[in-house]
Computed example of a mutant assay.
Amino acid sequence: MNCADVEALHAERWFHTIELPDGSCTPGVFDMRSCSARLDWPALTGARCLDVGTCDGFWAFEIERRGAAEVLAIDVDDPWQLDLPQEVRDRDIEELRRSAARRKKRFEMAAAARSSRVRRIACSVYDLDPAMHGVFDVIFCGTLLIHLRDPVRALRRIAGVCAGELMLLETVDARLDLLHPSSPCARLEPAPLQWWRANTAGLHAMLRLAGFEVLSTSPRFLTPHGAGLSSGRPQGARARASAWARTRLAASSAPLVTRSLGLVFGNYDVAIRARPRAGVRPAAVVL
């Protein structure tokens, strides 16, 4: 990369922290690199993989780096396809269009900088179709269900193109996890632009209803903030303290620390490996 390319990359407001060939990183709001190191990845070498809701592309590029033979990344470019409350869509449609264009541009810039072979297409998770997109050995879905009005329908679509395993990384409601550890439940509209935030049992139930069986569930963890957090809107003292704590302590693997911070923030993350149940073939899933 030349200096102009590097400057252009760093001038963007990134959601993901992505490593670049010159040793620098994009200034993302979140830094998932430590999370990736914790995941119990399925075999990726030589696999055909799908990244659902790719955004800036961190997980797609990470899957490629880990040896996948082919990676398809999907995201929504048409804001009318986003699961948003009607009043938000009507009020912010022009900004939503600009945001979608910027998201696509960031992915393309990062892919070019990394000389990546990941292919990105505009596609909603609800429109996944084995006849059009084929089937995949490994599917990654990161922090998407919380933004969907119908997460079970989305998981059924994913099951329809899954010939191997799904790696689901999702935000979990820490308080529901504590109060109802064995009962599937979710909180409606826990934060702006979020539909459902389930407990871990709720995520397991969604997967079961969509035709998956759970293989493993990771310990709880926190995703650190990245350098891009400070480049957004001004933050109050409480928000700055929260961001500092999350970033500094997210690397801790101590369950008590994670649970305590999750209760303060209201959430933490888990990663679940799952596969379509025996006898459920991708093309046979009712969509």
Rank of each mutant, 00 (worst) to 15 (best):
R48Q: 10
F58T: 00
Q81L: 14
L84P: 10
W41T: 05
A68V: 05
D90Y: 00
F58K: 01
R48W: 01
R65S: 13
A47Y: 05
D77P: 01
R65Q: 11
D51A: 13
I63D: 12
L72P: 00
G57D: 03
D77Q: 14
L84Q: 09
R66V: 04
P79Y: 11
A69M: 01
I63Q: 07
I74T: 14
D90H: 02
W41Q: 12
V52N: 04
T45L: 04
V52G: 04
L39Y: 15
R66P: 02
Q86V: 12
I63R: 05
C49S: 11
G46A: 06
L82E: 15
Q81T: 06
G46K: 08
Q81H: 15
R91P: 00
E70N: 09
L44P: 06
W80T: 15
W59P: 01
D56G: 05
D83K: 06
R91D: 03
R48P: 08
C55W: 02
D90L: 03
R38F: 04
D51I: 13
W59A: 01
E62H: 02
D83S: 13
E70R: 12
D92W: 03
L84N: 07
P79V: 08
D56V: 01
R66F: 09
W80E: 15
R38L: 14
R91E: 08
W59M: 06
R48I: 01
A47P: 12
A43Q: 15
D40R: 15
R66L: 10
V76I: 15
F61N: 00
A68D: 06
G53V: 08
L82R: 14
D51Q: 09
V52S: 08
L84A: 02
